[in-house]
């Protein structure tokens, strides 16, 4: 049995779970499991100290730190609904379509591994979650997953991927999600909700205080 393939499938299934989840808690959990799987996937490359570091950092950040932070913010804001624009069952259908497209893309690339399809799919799923859910939390989760997809690309490429770039990218996303988490936390404290559609009125830069 090929364990990396199993990990790739776990990544894919987490995407599905993410798109179909009707609870933020479930979305965060799916993202965390996916983070852990991605971390272990790093060992698909020849093992060097960089790879070990990458793996450890990925697991620490994606599977532990972010989910923990997001959960704290979620509990503080008492939000537990992703507030979708698109129904959950229809999301499923879109999910299947995105997966089909991903497989087709990976065939076009001639790197028709499960992981490559999974990487495409993860990027698409990330985008989908960002655009189809109103909740600010799901946006943060979406960015996280999107980055996971880019990371999976690196792992899927047969030649040596620069692990340092990966680490840098991880840091970027770390900052982004961290800032978003703080922001969401503050917004939710002010407004009792974190619905991006409803706080769009802030954009006219009126002084709220």
């Amino acid at each position: 049995m090929n364990y990396f393939e199993l990990l790739a499938v776990i990544v894919i299934l987490c995407d599905v779970a993410l798109c179909a989840a009707s609870r933020l808690r479930a979305m965060i959990r799916a993202a965390a499991v996916q983070g852990a799987a991605l971390g272990l996937l790093a060992f698909i490359k020849p093992v060097t100290w960089e790879i070990v570091l990458l793996s450890a950092a990925t697991i620490a950040i994606k599977a532990v730190l972010f989910p923990w932070l997001l959960n704290i913010a979620r509990e503080k804001s008492k939000a537990d609904e992703p507030a979708p624009y698109v129904g959950y069952n229809f999301s499923f259908a879109i999910c299947a379509a995105m997966f089909g497209v991903s497989v087709w893309l990976s065939h076009r690339l001639d790197v028709a591994t499960t992981l490559m399809a999974g990487a495409f799919f993860t990027v698409l799923a990330g985008f989908f979650v960002i655009v189809s859910r109103k909740s600010a939390f799901s946006q943060a989760i979406g960015y996280l997953v999107l980055e996971g997809g880019v990371y999976a690309f690196g792992m899927a490429m047969p030649n040596e991927a620069p692990a340092l770039v990966e680490l840098g990218l991880l840091l970027d996303v770390f900052m982004a999600v961290f800032i978003m988490g703080i922001m969401v936390y503050h917004i939710s404290r002010e407004f009792e909700h974190a619905d991006m559609a409803k706080i769009a009125f802030l954009s006219d830069l009126e002084d709220y205080d």
Binding site: L13, F92, C95, A96, F99, A117
Partner: peptide, 18 residues
């Protein structure tokens, strides 16, 4: 219930692809 049945389809679909 439908979501669970759809996920069964999705699992089978993923299996077909891999």
């Amino acid at each position: 219930v439908p979501a669970l049945l759809l996920s069964a389809s999705m699992l089978a679909f993923a299996a077909f692809m891999v």
